[in-house]
Design a protein around this nucleic acid. Sequence first.
DNA 1: CCTTGTCCCAAGTAAAATAGTCAACAATCT
DNA 2: AGATTGTTGACTATTTTACTTGGGACAAGG
Lengths: 156, 156
Amino acid sequence: MRLSTKGRYAVTAMLDLALHSGNGPVTLADVSVNQGISLSYLEQLFAALRNKKLVRGVRGPGGGYYLGKPASEISIADIICAVDEWVEFTRCGGRENCRDGQRCLTHHLWDQLSDEIFRFLSDITLQDLVDRGRSRPGSPTIEVGDLEDRAKRRAA
Amino acid sequence: MRLSTKGRYAVTAMLDLALHSGNGPVTLADVSVNQGISLSYLEQLFAALRNKKLVRGVRGPGGGYYLGKPASEISIADIICAVDEWVEFTRCGGRENCRDGQRCLTHHLWDQLSDEIFRFLSDITLQDLVDRGRSRPGSPTIEVGDLEDRAKRRAA
DNA sequence: CCTTGTCCCAAGTAAAATAGTCAACAATCT
DNA sequence: AGATTGTTGACTATTTTACTTGGGACAAGG
């Protein structure tokens, strides 16, 4: 799992798409203005998102992008994985013999943690974020912590 | 929150330190060999960790590094924040007027998610990882999911 | 004291990732 | 046809990563 600014751009852009869905497709130019991301950089990100079927492009006037699936079926992990290449971190890829065994333990523990983070982000969908914002439109502060409960229930 | 390979190096190194604690201080040279990280890069990472009091160095022959605090008081978020500068992502920093209000909503939602991730990583300590490895030393696969329960209890 | 082992510090650097620009082309609508 | 938008690819400046080099500072053992 990797969480860089690139992933943030992608999540933010997808969130923008989800929020504006219903008014027809959303142009990258709009997202660019709304979120302050350069148009051509968005194009690169959306090329990756398109490959993973997370968005669907419509050409021509009145065109733009739709979400490729319902927002409730797109997780944050999906988005981040689409734009950030998944790089295996541990050097001994399971099959290789580790020098002292201790090394493997450390790496295994890291893998565990990495899995944990991945699961956590897999349990949060775009729809979760949209719902959270819509439910209390005027409220300046929104309570966090409910997402965790939701993820917990889904896991159970 | 930012989760790069740099942060992974730091977490892995700290994990190595936690696992070898008890046999006196651990040298960076050992960590370098065990984890396959270059010595001078480790020195840079540990300089940051030292500034945040997460490790304590002992000079001279027989010297090395100790954890600065008990492993149970060092969270994964602590480690990552020490080596990866925290960069604020959203452009409108709360006080600034957003152009259309919608922008603020998107950014707010992202902030929420970012907080959520940070809390999640704050609830996992080095000790948690060490315990998880020690409890089933011979087992090839270790069940994940318990860490979430533990974090849940701590939050309650 | 002197040597050795370690931490500590600073500067530089090659490779990669980030965050763009620019230009051309393809599909669609009016 | 012409305007609008997606699609693709090549190119570039900046930053970050991961590492190198080369030295010190400081403590223990002889």
